[in-house]
Amino acid sequence: MTLDFAAILTPQYTQWMLSGAMTSLALFASAWVLAFLTASLLVAIGSAPFRPAQFTVATFVEYHRNIPMLVQIFVWYFAMPQLLPDAWTTWINAHNSEFIFALIALFLNSAAYMSEDMRSGLRSLPREQMEAGRALGLSYLQTMRDVLLPQAIRAALPPLINQSLALFKATSLAMAIGVAEMTYASRQVENETYRTFETFAIASAFYVTLSFAIMALGAWVDRRNQKAAGH
């Protein structure tokens, strides 16, 4: 087997791969931000002393944890358009529906996992903090947002970084509904050139580089936490 990277690095194929990489990154970045915000919201709602709110959040989390990511993408792509108002569906179809539905499925799934990580982080804080916050005249939401959540997020950082890695890898599943991200692009180039090894090597290098960066961040946070615990 002779390697011939030049065969797949023509302007056309390079363009496909680059645009695939950009789509993967865009999907990851936007899903991450939305997931993080949603997770914070879920934690705030779930820790309110109100049973139905807790139950709703728990149901949301269990749904997303017990169904494969790919199936969640399919539910959004194939089933949800039937249930959403027509005007929404029309709008989404006019704006790259594959990307939008993959994004929604990815960020909701990640939000469920992240909220669980944050909740455990929150549980590691002493109860008195909430009481102190309330006693100082802050509202429930203010205490949550300004006192408890920042600390909880710090405590939950290691699992959150792991979840970010899972989210990054999960973006590859978007190819199943035709989002032209990295995995999709590499398969397309492979189909045209039959240069399987070279194409998958480039795609894998992309995933490994970013995943390693995320893992390195995780290792750095772990070291810092250990040092902080040592003092």
Binding site: A170, S172, T183, E190, S204, Y207
Partner: peptide
């Protein structure tokens, strides 16, 4: 362990196919 964890399962399926 690191390399496998860095790759999406889908990529591993493609590699296995090859």
């Amino acid at each position: 362990v690191s390399v496998v964890r860095a790759l999406p399962l889908l990529m591993l399926i493609f590699w296995a196919y090859f």
